[in-house]
């Protein structure tokens, strides 16, 4: 056990933890966040995705000790039901979900890519989503929502 400090969605936390605990379990169990989820625990599906340093991170395989000073952003950190982030708003408008379990992977990966490269092509966005699984296959609506967001932010 070690005392570990974390910044998640703008809030600081100090927790006593086994430093090898996957970040995902800390987010779910210690901090009660619902955005990132356990899909596979093996970085194969993206359901656990968070953003750190502008980069996609699969929180199910990152030990919490590796987070350090970097701020962690989860899906709920982007926006709220009262004030959704524009990418969330685009997804809401397109109804781009069925069960919704995969959304952290889809929304956060797309947002992180577009933050780095606002003019990323459809192909580049799709390639970045190569590690994300949506088994309900809401792909068409999701890509339409992403495109809508990308175009709006370019404008």
């Amino acid at each position: 056990m070690r005392e570990i400090t974390l910044t998640v969605n703008g809030k600081h936390h100090t927790l006593a933890l086994d430093p090898e605990t996957p970040l995902l379990f800390v987010l779910n169990d210690e901090l009660g966040l619902c955005g990132p989820r356990f899909g596979c625990g093996m970085a194969q599906c993206g359901a656990c995705t968070v953003i750190m340093r502008g980069q996609v991170v699969r929180s199910c395989v990152m030990p919490v000790s590796a987070v350090g000073q970097d701020e962690v952003t989860t899906l709920e950190g982007l926006g709220t039901p009262e004030k959704p982030h524009p990418i969330q708003q685009a997804f809401i408008e397109e109804g781009a979900a069925q069960c919704g379990f995969c959304l952290s992977g889809v929304i956060l990966t797309a947002k992180a890519v577009l933050d780095v490269k606002p003019d990323a092509s459809d192909q580049a966005i799709r390639d970045a989503l190569g590690g994300v699984l949506c088994r309900c296959f809401t792909h068409t609506r999701m890509l339409r929502a992403i495109r809508k967001y990308a175009e709006a932010r370019r404008a």
Binding site: Q55, V61, A128
Partner: peptide, 21 residues
């Protein structure tokens, strides 16, 4: 590429289990 880096999944040590990064 872009925001999907090696460190998106790969840590500084092996993770136990088959097919883990």
């Amino acid at each position: 590429v872009n925001a999907v880096r090696c460190s998106t999944c790969h840590q500084d040590h092996n993770l136990a289990g088959l097919h883990m990064p």
